[in-house]
Simulated assay, not measured.
Amino acid sequence: MRKTTKRSEKIGAESAASGNAGIPAPGEGKRGEAGYLGYLLRQAGAAHRLRMERALTDLGITPPQFVVLTMLVAYPGISGADLARLAALTPQTVSVIVGNLERDGAIERRPHPVHGRIQQIGVTEAGLALLKQCRTRVKKLEAQMIEGFSAGEEQVIRRWLASLAREGEAGGLQALS
Rank of each mutant, 00 (worst) to 15 (best):
S95A: 11
I121Y: 02
L40K: 06
N20W: 05
S177G: 13
R54P: 01
S177L: 14
D58C: 02
A74T: 05
L69R: 01
A16E: 07
A106H: 10
Y75N: 11
G148W: 03
G168P: 03
A170W: 13
S150N: 03
E108Y: 08
Y39H: 11
P26C: 06
D82S: 09
A126S: 09
K3M: 10
S15R: 11
H115D: 13
L56M: 02
M1Q: 12
D58M: 04
G116Q: 09
Q144K: 13
H48I: 07
R2D: 13
L130S: 01
S15P: 03
I11L: 07
P111G: 12
G38W: 11
Q155G: 04
A25I: 00
Q92H: 11
R158P: 02
Q92R: 14
E28Y: 05
Q120K: 11
W160F: 11
G152T: 04
I11R: 07
T90Y: 15
A87M: 01
E167M: 14
L131K: 02
L176A: 15
E53F: 06
G116D: 14
A151V: 04
A21L: 02
T124M: 07
G45L: 10
A44N: 09
I23H: 03
H115I: 12
S15L: 14
E28L: 03
R166Y: 13
G35R: 04
M52G: 04
A143D: 10
N20D: 10
R137N: 06
